[in-house]
Design a binder for these strands. Structure first.
Lengths: 207, 207
DNA sequence: GTCTATATGAAGATAGAC
DNA sequence: GTCTATCTTCATATAGAC
């Protein structure tokens, strides 16, 4: 009853396309590489997707969706806001700095002029999702009085925290593709971000 | 006495290569585009550079050098540390978010796996230079007692400020290639970064 | 699944212009 | 003679036919 025939094949094609595009980028990738890696014929390949462009779009969409659901699955342990931010930050940075995460960012950024939808999609399903998540926790902490972010608002504060967590590590991974950061290094980045953020916005409460 | 003949031609070639590579990236760019845009023959083109790769490297090197000297030319007005940071941040963000700056970052990040030297060079001549510049000012301000960064050190503090200034705007420009930020938007980002940084590290001085 | 038509790129060679 | 324009070669790409 299935029309597009053999679902397994189309999964193999999408997996292969993902691997090839994330490794070589759009222009340097060839449909032959994808075909060979998927172990299918050209007919099958072009039966799944009408063009190289369509394959690329499908790859980006799936990666973004996967990233979004991974982010949404983050379950910060209960505790004070510093601990919560640390949990979220650590989980997010692990995703961003993973080989997959770095490669995806590279390709999306490189091809954003040609595939603007890919850029938008990435923004909405990545940074935006985690920022919303942080904003929610900041909102709670603000109500309880643990932090005071009235000066700039919840959204801006969340954005600042996410930026603090991501930036330095991501920049180094993007520009030094040979060196991968250690777990300790990632921890240091997260702690520095949390300390900076909390140091700025903690409430001045007299005991 | 000049061996490579006609300096003007080689400048035209490098200019053309810059325009083509920054617009299309490495793989999608063709030597024919460069040749046509420079108005020279293939022989001239390959007389200047032995290969497409060499042209790319030359383009990146020159852009990085240009960026570095632009950054080094920043002259922050005298005043308190908040004003100084605002001046540096504003000038740096103007460079980073310029069409050239965004395009260069895009290409360097995309090609860093294939041209790791380009990534290293960019890091050293861009973020590193401005961070050193900020560190110097922070050091002075710290000695005078305007700020207290003893908890994390000058380098880390400078890195945090530079990250705060750059991140959000750069992310949006990279992922939304159609929308260019207004001068007011850039000002808002800079002010937010300065306020956050100062709010965190200002000295608690009793009057 | 193999095989091929068409097209385009990189690089070099040949021959013409000043 | 130095520089330029055009043509050729070789490789590889997409797309589709068998």
């Amino acid at each position: 009853m299935i029309k597009t025939a053999s679902n397994e094949k189309s999964v193999a094609v999408l997996d292969a396309a993902t691997s090839v595009f994330l490794t070589h980028g759009f222009s340097a990738a060839t449909t032959d590489m994808i075909q060979r890696e998927a172990g299918v014929s050209k007919k099958t390949l072009y039966g799944c997707y009408p063009s190289k462009e369509a394959m690329f779009v499908a790859v980006i969409e799936r990666q973004c969706a996967s990233m979004a659901s991974t982010i949404r699955a983050i379950q910060p342990a209960a505790g004070d806001i510093a601990k919560t931010l640390g949990d979220i930050g650590r989980a997010y940075l692990d995703i961003v700095l993973s080989e997959r995460g770095v490669a995806l960012f590279r390709v999306v950024v490189a091809e954003a002029p040609r595939f603007p939808d890919a850029g938008r999609r990435f923004y909405l399903t990545g940074p935006k999702v985690v920022t919303a998540m942080v904003a929610e926790r900041l909102s709670e902490a603000s109500l309880v009085g643990d932090i005071d972010i009235r000066a700039i608002g919840v959204e801006a504060a969340a954005s600042i925290f996410v930026s603090l967590v991501r930036t330095e590590g991501q920049l180094e991974c993007l520009l030094h593709p040979d060196a991968r950061p250690s777990a300790e290094q990632i921890d240091r980045w997260v702690r520095l971000a949390v300390d900076t953020f909390i140091g700025r916005f903690e409430s001045a409460k007299a005991p």
